[in-house]
Simulated scan of single mutants.
Amino acid sequence: MKIEHIAIWVQDIDKVCEFYRKYFGGVVHPIYHNPAKQFTSRFVTFESGARLEIMHRPDIDANVGTVTSLTFHVEHSEHLGFAHLSFSVGSKEEVDRLTRQMTDDGIQVIGEPRTTGDGYYESVVLDPEGNRVEITV
């Protein structure tokens, strides 16, 4: 058994897909649009076979996470549910290089490269819509 894909709601599909293409080598697939449901998505596939589904629907509010009549507050702090995506880039040097490149490109780095208490060498960045992404060996 394997996880088939992970899906993320976003406001700007193209911007988010470009982030995962540019920094993690994802292949961006054609856009899918269902006008009846006002739903649009694109898959991004990675070398390992892992896939992200980047999705948009206009009734999902980026500021407060509103879906129809359900409202919950979204912040960049910790919360219950998915916490982050993690990409293994193969070496400490590549973690450092990619983190520097992202810094130079204006990507928000919220955790500089370091060895964590449980032995991971990683940095943490935010994708264009504030989702946490760990870059690790």
Rank of each mutant, 00 (worst) to 15 (best):
E78Y: 11
L126F: 08
L70K: 12
F24T: 12
S48A: 09
T45F: 01
Q38L: 14
S48I: 06
W9E: 12
Y20C: 06
T116Y: 12
D127W: 05
S86N: 07
H73G: 10
E4N: 14
I6A: 09
S86R: 11
I107R: 02
Y32N: 11
M102I: 13
G117D: 12
Q108W: 02
E47S: 12
G25A: 04
T45V: 07
F72I: 07
E75Y: 00
I107S: 02
G49R: 03
G130R: 04
R132F: 09
M102R: 03
W9A: 13
V10P: 01
N63Q: 13
G26K: 08
I60C: 04
Y23K: 04
K15G: 02
P113N: 06
E122G: 00
C17Q: 09
W9C: 01
Y120P: 00
R51Q: 15
L70E: 11
M1T: 11
E93D: 14
V10D: 03
V74G: 04
M55T: 14
Y32E: 09
D127T: 07
L126V: 08
K2E: 14
L52A: 07
V10F: 01
E134Y: 07
F19I: 12
R42F: 05
G26I: 07
F82A: 10
H79S: 15
D127K: 02
F39R: 03
D12N: 15
F43D: 01
S77L: 09
Y121W: 11
E134W: 03
V16A: 01
Y121T: 06
S88A: 12
D127Y: 02
T136H: 06
I3Q: 09
E93I: 00
T115E: 15
F72S: 14
D14V: 06
H5Y: 14
V16H: 00
I6P: 00
R21G: 04
S41I: 00
E18K: 10
H56A: 12
Q11I: 00
E134M: 01
I135A: 03
Q108M: 06
